[in-house]
Design a protein around this nucleic acid. Structure first.
Lengths: 232, 232
DNA sequence: ATAAAAAGTTCAGCCATATTGAACTTCGAA
DNA sequence: TTCGAAGTTCAATATGGCTGAACTTTTTAT
């Protein structure tokens, strides 16, 4: 492991996590680097265009050059377009709030969503991010992407939550993920994977009030959703 | 400058440049690194999720984690939506092929375009990339973004083309960029900047056959386009 | 407006760390 | 199956990055 590479990327993620802009000391604290070291790396990132600064304040911003890589690495809008019909089918057939999410580093990113039309409904989280641990959709990714699981949990899985490892195993076993009021009391979720070219590229989720979605209903919905996904 | 950070990013750009996948030796050759060094850095990038590998072959691919940063750094679709009306106005008022482009690292990226309806027209380059040097739109960015100019040309500007420095100065002076058959014989272009919050975020370009677009017409078009941009 | 505090930047020396080449293993073409 | 090419590991070494102290700039408080 090349130390400074790891640190540089940690700094970039740190700025991203702070919403795209951060102060040197903020970054240094967050990454547990000495301010001087953080400064050195930021200077490099700045010189290369991956980080920028504005006249007004002393913050460090993420630079456009990152988009250079992203445009090749993958394109969200293409993916969204591909999956939209399936999402619409799910919304129609289930009547609940449904969404598409992708693993984005150590977090889950909500790519697209359709809200239920019912008076009591789960909110769309389109454009938001959520930690991997603690949601059905995150569980889904952890269960299907071994490298992610290794990176996130490693040997000290228990620190995050007891039984988390067992939960992931159960999810992997049954193929889809369930969340019964873990993410939020009163809210239940199911999530099924979209597997393309042998790997999980995205996940479809459905959430709604517990009263409408008992365990039995959730498992039925998982079947319905899997059926739709299979036809993509 | 932290050397290994620079190298790591150069490697990522190298993979991106190769279309998203590359062999170790390819990367090592391109970046002028020893294969072992490249391997070390790639191993780090791989462990962190910025680079991935597939079972089938030994190539290194760009990983999804980069999108993590890109989602915060900026979003092309938002920008495109903002600029679309202006682009449509230009298409209507000029009748030529018009486009929106952004600086993307050391290259120009074509974000959006509307093709002329005339029988002889410039092609849309939407989604493509082009070097900074050699096009009106690139000239525009070089003239308006000092840091970019420094990075691209540095002290040895003459190596790239004679008089390139003079051309950039002239572009900066008049505010918009011109290309008379430099990019392609028979093709003329104008490009005007969109300045937001004190900095160039994108550029609007127009191109068409030389016969329809003599110098005088080009300067008039620059006025027209600037007027439209000012109203964004 | 001024001063004090906080934040950011520069620098030179030292030691940890990345680099290196050589040896080894795996992959892929013939 | 063989052979050449591509990828990976390892230990030694020198390089390059880290560090703290001193300095400058920016921000906040009075």
């Amino acid at each position: 492991m090349v130390q400074s590479v790891e640190r540089a990327l940690e700094i970039l993620e740190c700025i991203a996590h702070a919403g795209g802009a951060a102060h040197l000391n903020e970054i240094a604290r967050e990454t547990r680097l000495k301010p001087t070291t953080a400064h050195n790396i930021l200077k490099t990132l700045h010189a290369l265009g991956y980080v920028r600064r504005r006249e007004k304040n002393t913050r460090y911003y993420l630079g456009d050059r990152i988009l250079n890589l992203a445009r090749v690495a993958g394109n969200d809008s293409g993916l969204r377009r591909t999956l939209r019909p399936a999402l619409e089918a799910m919304a129609e057939q289930t009547g609940e709030t449904v969404f598409v999410a992708v693993p984005s580093g150590d977090e889950v990113y909500f790519l697209d969503a359709i809200e239920s039309l019912k008076p009591l409904k789960a909110a769309s989280q389109e454009g938001q991010r959520t930690p991997m641990v603690g949601s059905a959709i995150g569980l889904l990714f952890l269960a299907h992407i071994p490298s992610l699981r290794r990176r996130m949990l490693g040997p000290h899985a228990d620190r995050i939550g007891p039984s988390i490892d067992a939960e992931i195993d159960a999810t992997a076993e049954r193929g889809y993920a369930l969340d019964q009021e873990n993410y939020l009391p009163g809210l239940n979720c199911v999530a099924v994977p979209w597997i393309d070219d042998g790997e999980v590229r995205a996940g479809f989720g459905l959430s709604g009030p517990t009263r409408r979605l008992p365990l039995e209903t959730l498992t039925e919905l998982a079947e319905t959703m899997s059926g739709i996904v299979a036809r993509i």
